[in-house]
Amino acid sequence: MTDEKGQSEQRKAGGTYLGQAWLVLTLALVFGGALAGVQVAWGPIIERNKENEARLRIPLLLGRMSEAQLDAPDGEQHAHTELDKLSIEERMLEVPRAGGGANRYGLYAVAGKATRAPAGWVLQTRGPGYAGDIELLVGLDPGAERILGLYVLAQNETPGVGNAIGTAKWRSQFADRPAGISLSAVKDPTTDGEIQAIGGATISSQSVCDIVNRAVRDLRKVLPQLRDRQE
């Protein structure tokens, strides 16, 4: 009697395990289908968002648009119109470092679409800030003689203090600076090589200067090779 009971219990246990498995498998299939649908529908939009983050800023960084225009409701449209006038080539740039290793940058080589005349360079670079990395876009003129603009893509600086490096007002200091001079952040800027540091966030401000200095220096180093490639 007990043997039969044990056997029937075993059979039931085996049955329920199989019974439970089909529920999980069905759910997995249904959810997998839903996720595949989401990927197909929204994947391209997400890719575009990621690309646009840097691309949409290129007209701003090359002095073809102002911050106010970009922030306006039709700012994105305007940026796209400007981008349509340009042909942009994306590349990875590697410049060897003095102590070994290399500095890597994302480089956008921008030229006029119709005229094919070089319009400038935009470098995407990152470096250490006060708290974590700061990722920047730096715009330069075709001869790498002047810095035309700066944009902060990502930063983790102290909210309310170092955070201000992202504001348009602070960044506008980098528009139209000579690129041959090393920039530094000071309290009372007097010369071309000095910019106003944020009160209470000297390290954040100086970090941005260091990152920009390094990127500009490296671009100027390899400019002859890049120009040869352009022709």
Binding site: R97, I181, S182, V186, G193, Q206, C209, V216, R220, K221
Partner: peptide
């Protein structure tokens, strides 16, 4: 790494391109 030079008033020139 070369430590960045940032003294007020100091204007080091980069090597020409």
């Amino acid at each position: 790494d070369e430590p960045p030079v940032h003294k007020a008033g100091h204007v080091p020139e980069f090597p020409p391109k």
